[in-house]
Design a protein around this nucleic acid. Structure first.
Length: 934
RNA sequence: GCCCUGGUGGUGGAACUGGUAGACACGCAGGACUUAAAAUCCUGUUCGCCGCAACGCGAGUGCGGGUUCAAUUCCCGCCUGGGGCACCA
């Protein structure tokens, strides 16, 4: 009887479906466990072998927990709104809903092939009205709330209005504008429109103006990655910054809670650090500097003082005597006022240059650029005049958009000063060597008047106090994080449930939800940078918002919908969310570190504050799967010919890389590095039909390069093909066997045979290929029990700590040992089958049935590890002399250190290595090793 | 540029808390079975040196230094692959 995996897998997948074995109930007396995958965006390319890595891990863990007696929620769905479907619609005229539904069908088929245990009755699709109705509803909750800094939580906007009516905004300072101040009378006197404008500055979801990448030629707003070197990726048209009305989420109000929350959840330290850096909390001070404008032409020493000061943000007020220049962002409001006649042209040119550059480019390049404004700031302590420059390395969005340049203490300031020949004041003496800035806080200050001799760390507070006394500065906590842009000028997203009446945003009532995404004639952008919805007369006539929500709207709360997916009266019943509570294990890639994972944490906190759910962190534990990279294969065509030379010939120097054109070939017809030439000449409709090959030993060897897995690089491997060839169980185990689940690695199919052989070998413990049934009911020997229980311990520990690759290897060791022992005993094999079920569910169901059991193996009881079967009485100790292992001695485990020393010193080989020298130190680690120092 | 992460045989990787480096698997080499192939099984496989072999010796976890009886593991400096950086999801 052979291992017929195709038949077995088909049978059991059908059986699971017919018997509905993966349906999960919202009520159970078992403990609950919620295991979640980051849901996929259903792209047209379908799944490649990288996608299932995390899904297989979560599937194993779900089945493992189920066997251990948990009620496991393990759902799947689709993040179905997004740009690619819209691009496809623009190019092919296919409605995004149509192409998305088609892509989802493909995904589903591919997922089913691998045998996952999802409860598909709970599937969600973010683009369906039944789902986005609640996305819109949650948006309205955010719109109708503000963040009360006193209570540190979201509260209804009605609370705020009441407070305004009673005492103005005295107890609720405006988060958007700290200088806004009004009394109860002032509030009462305001018009309705003015009131709404004030409230907008408090709302958690609010409308404001922000810069976008605007491409005039395409008439559309572009994403950062659609902009390359200041021009559009498609077409190469110029892109400039443009201010547009935008929706935002006031996530900055949650900055502290998002930081504190990290202490209560299990994310990797790296992930926590990334989020912490993204939030970027810094303690510093805002300092106002007077501005002087030179009068008349050059050489004139008269100055006019400007009424408004230059406000800078610094984390290092202690370095104030080291300020040699000021730098303001190219978007800074003061530029027009402070630029002198002489500098006008230069400043104008510089700003035009900067407008063409993305934030990324501005930060990434080492190139130093800048322009003097002609104006000066005044050091408040010694009256020194400090030139004010403009440079792109200062970003308008952070702090005040202006910094004080301290070249001896900051690397970027230092390069700037050197480049523009600005004299450098050294305030840290020997700590500054004249060639590199030194950001120390430990130096004793010099050239700093009243601060001389004071340690920098201590000077910070002294300066802050002085500045406060003088009324020109105050301590300020800053965050790098900005409010999250929440609108897109696109079609394929959730419409905002907002109407604009006389310039005031009015929410639709709950009964008007969902506000359906309308059909459009064209998916092209609307006028003036508006989205395609602005092209629909009826939409515009109803004064509905023409922006749509971004991709992360639907994904910020989907984990809640899985709990109660068909509820039509609430996004999720409170009783149900109380039962399932937090996601116990969340698996996905690190690429979502600062986007999705921060937004969903914020939404959860807001929903918690408003009393809709009972927990304020969505994911109790996060596991990041590594990225599976592609391993591309190249052939090399001699320039201007049809001759392809084998990579060996280039390696051996017969040809150089300059003589050939490297061409990517599909990895699916390259075996290892050897090209299937017959397949190659038929590839791409015979484009290479006339190919001639020059090679050694009749083998054409391809070159290899590791890059992202992508269709355009011909390096994708489709899981379907591997499942067809080796079976889903082999595929699942091989993906796990590749390496640690959290590590990135290039895909390589060549080891899959080993895993397949393992399953065949397992099968042969139960069935002889000729004689049939082999398993028997005889009682196992001590050696056999030992093999089983060692495996139980190892598998349980490894699965618990997500070390799936070592678990697979432990299964192999177990089966190898049982085969060597010729052990076909049911008492050993049956528990082994249960252990293996999470990893290879199909074959285990089949063997479970073969052993005479009823029902699914998932309802079996997980084997219990018993120590009595694995205890050892002695150990083969490695004995080192001066740290080098020289021999092994078998010693009883309960021997004392004295006994061990005696035995070791008596050993012949040890004697030889001692060379008669005396023992200086004897190190004995029980159960591990012995080391003799001589 | 900034932030994060990795680097161990021909290959993927193992070594969980500083304690025998290379488990398990691929590949390769040799052998058994077979008319042959597939499948299966057995043996060997980090590198260098001596040697018929056994045994043995030395080096070795990206590079250079340090701490320690002992370092793949901890510390400092460097090289290098990958991911992220706010409108891709």
């Amino acid at each position: 009887m052979e291992y017929d995996f195709r038949k077995i897998e088909k049978t059991w997948q059908q059986n699971w479906k017919d018997k509905n074995v993966y349906a999960v109930s919202n009520t159970s007396n078992k403990p609950k466990c919620y295991v979640l995958d980051m849901f996929p965006y259903p792209s047209g390319a379908g799944l490649h072998v990288g996608h299932p890595l995390g899904y297989i891990a979560s599937d194993i863990y779900s089945r493992f927990k189920r066997l251990k007696g948990f009620n496991v929620l393990h759902p799947m769905g689709y993040d179905a709104f997004g740009l690619p479907a819209e691009q496809y619609a623009i190019e092919h005229g296919v409605h995004p809903a149509t192409s998305t539904a088609k892509n989802i069908d493909t995904f589903r088929q591919q997922l089913d092939n691998i045998g996952f245990c999802y409860d598909w009755s709970r599937e969600v699709r973010t683009c369906e009205p039944g789902y986005y109705r609640w996305t819109q509803w949650i948006f309205l909750q955010l719109f109708e709330s503000f963040f009360n800094r006193k209570t540190q939580k979201a509260e209804p906007i009605a609370v705020l209005i009441k407070s305004f009516e009673q005492e103005g905004n005295a107890i609720h300072p405006c988060p958007a504008n700290s200088s806004l101040s009004f009394s109860a009378a002032g509030w009462a006197a305001a018009t309705e429109k003015e009131k709404q404008e004030i409230l907008m500055q408090y709302r958690l979801a609010f409308c404001g103006y922000g810069e976008v990448n605007w491409c005039e030629a395409l008439g559309t707003v572009l994403a950062n990655d659609e902009v390359v070197n200041g021009v559009s990726e498609r077409g190469g048209y110029p892109v400039v910054k443009k201010k547009l009305r935008q929706w935002y989420l006031r996530i900055t109000e949650y900055a502290d809670r998002l930081l504190e929350g990290l202490e209560t959840i299990e994310f990797s330290d790296a992930m926590k650090e990334m989020q912490t850096n993204w939030i970027g909390k810094s303690y510093g001070a805002e300092i106002d500097f007077e501005i002087l404008l030179p009068q008349g032409g050059e050489g004139n020493h008269a100055f006019t003082k400007l009424p408004s000061p230059l406000r800078v943000y610094t984390t290092r007020p202690d370095t104030i005597f080291g300020v040699d220049f000021m730098v303001i962002a190219p978007e800074h409001d003061l530029i027009e006022q402070i630029t002198t006649e002489e500098q006008k042209t230069a400043v104008g040119e510089y700003i035009t240059y900067v407008k063409s550059r993305s934030d990324r480019e501005r930060q990434a390049e080492k190139r130093i650029s800048g322009c003097f404004t002609g104006a000066f700031a005044v050091n408040p302590f010694n009256g020194k005049k400090i030139p004010i420059w403009i440079s792109e390395y200062v970003l308008a969005g952070y702090g005040t958009g202006a910094i004080m340049g301290v070249p001896c203490g900051d690397e970027r300031d230092h390069r700037f000063a050197k480049h523009f020949h600005i004299p450098i004041t050294n305030i840290i003496g020997a700590h500054y060597d004249g060639t590199d800035a030194n950001p120390t806080k430990e130096a004793l200050l010099e050239n700093s008047e009243f601060l001389n001799g004071i340690r920098m760390r201590d000077a910070i507070d002294i300066v802050n106090t002085r500045l406060e006394e003088m009324g020109i500065g105050k301590k300020k906590v800053n965050y790098k994080m900005r409010d999250a842009a929440f609108s897109r000028q696109r079609y394929w997203g959730e419409p905002f449930p907002i109407q604009w009446k006389n310039g005031v945003a009015e929410p639709l009532s709950e009964t008007e939800l969902p506000l359906l995404l309308p059909e459009v004639e064209s998916y092209r952008p609307g006028p003036e940078g508006e989205g395609p919805l602005a092209n629909i007369p009826e939409w515009v006539a109803r004064e509905l918002e023409t922006n749509t929500m971004p991709g992360y709207a639907g994904s910020s709360w989907y984990f809640l919908r899985y709990m109660d997916p068909h509820n039509t009266t609430a996004f999720c019943d409170r009783k149900v969310s109380d039962y399932w509570n937090q996601v116990d294990l969340y698996i996905g890639g690190t690429e979502h570190a600062v986007g999705h994972l921060l937004y969903s944490r914020m939404w959860t906190k807001a929903l918690f504050d408003l009393g809709h759910i009972g927990f304020d962190e969505p994911f109790r534990k996060l596991l990041n799967q590594g990225m599976i990279q592609g391993s591309s294969r190249f052939v090399y065509r001699l320039k201007g010919t049809e001759i392809f030379v084998s990579y060996e010939l280039i390696e051996k120097g017969k040809y150089t890389m300059d003589q050939v054109d490297p061409i990517r070939v599909d990895v699916n017809f390259v075996d290892g590095v050897e090209l299937d030439k017959a397949h190659f000449v038929k590839w791409r409709n015979g484009e290479y039909a006339n190919a001639k090959f020059e090679m050694e030993a009749d083998r054409y060897i391809c070159g290899v390069e590791v890059e992202k897995m992508s269709k355009s690089k011909f390096n994708t491997v489709n899981p379907d093909d591997l499942v067809e060839k080796f079976g889903a169980d082999t595929f699942r185990m091989y993906e796990m066997f590749l390496g640690p689940v959290d590590q990135s690695k290039p895909w390589d199919t060549k080891g899959i045979e080993g895993v397949h052989r393992f399953l065949k070998k397992l099968w042969r413990l139960f069935f002889d290929e000729v004689k049939g049934k082999r398993w028997e009911t005889e009682a196992p020997t001590a050696a056999e029990w030992k093999v089983l229980h060692r495996t139980i311990k190892k598998i349980e520990e490894d699965t618990d700590r997500f070390s799936f690759n070592t678990a697979v290897s432990a299964f192999m060791i177990c089966v190898n040992e049982l085969a060597d022992l010729k052990c076909y005993k049911r008492d050993i094999l049956q528990p082994l089958i249960i252990l293996l079920t999470p990893y290879a569910p199909h074959i285990c169901e089949e063997l479970w049935m073969a052993l005479g059991n009823e029902g699914t193996v998932l309802d079996a009881e997980y084997p219990k590890y018993e120590e009595k079967y694995t205890v050892e009485s002695s150990k083969e100790y490695p004995v080192s002399i001066n740290g080098k292992v020289r021999t092994n001695i078998n010693i009883a485990l309960d021997a004392t250190a004295e006994q061990v020393q005696e035995i070791a010193l008596a050993n012949e080989l040890v004697q030889k290595w001692m060379e008669g020298k005396t023992l200086k130190k004897f190190i004995f680690v029980k159960g591990k090793m012995i080391n003799l120092v001589i």
